[in-house]
């Protein structure tokens, strides 16, 4: 079952705009290390899930992984060889709208070397440039 909301108010959405940088969700808040996006765009439910599996498999049972984004935007797509018009197409997949600076994953309870290696694998699954970050202490 892909990540998607349980209930929605409207089945379809317009594309919207995605400008600026992240002002929320741009700090490591739950774990000790995180993966931060340096670019913005749409992160699909499949990409989020692929990243989660990549990190989970590398860290096996160790540590706790936090996924900080949720795909709540339905993206519709017309079937192939269909003429234009006849209204908006059916939703095809779900995505999260992310901005530069967004922390996508966090991990706690593992050494830094393991967190780095796990997030390096995750970064390959991401459609954006990413960087490894650590929590800022007081």
């Amino acid at each position: 079952m892909p990540l998607m909301p349980k209930r929605v108010k409207f089945r379809k959405q317009q594309r919207g705009t995605n400008k600026g940088n992240a002002t929320r969700g741009n700090k490591v808040s739950f774990g000790e290390y995180g993966l931060q996006l340096l670019e913005g765009g749409w992160l699909t439910a499949r990409q989020i899930e692929a990243g989660r599996i990549a990190a989970r498999q590398y860290a096996s049972r160790e540590g706790k992984l936090f996924v900080r984004v949720f795909p709540d935007k339905p993206i519709s797509k017309k079937p192939l060889e269909t003429r234009m018009g006849k209204g908006k197409a059916e939703p095809e997949y779900w995505c999260a709208v992310v901005k530069p600076g967004t922390i996508v994953y966090e991990i706690a309870g593992v050494p830094e070397s393991m967190a780095k290696a796990a997030f390096a694998r995750v970064a390959h699954k991401m459609p954006f440039k990413c960087r490894f970050v650590t929590r800022r202490h007081a």
Partner: peptide, 11 residues
């Protein structure tokens, strides 16, 4: 993939 979330009545 065809699974869809429930639409709240207001929609």
């Amino acid at each position: 993939a065809s699974d869809e979330p429930e639409v709240i009545d207001k929609g």
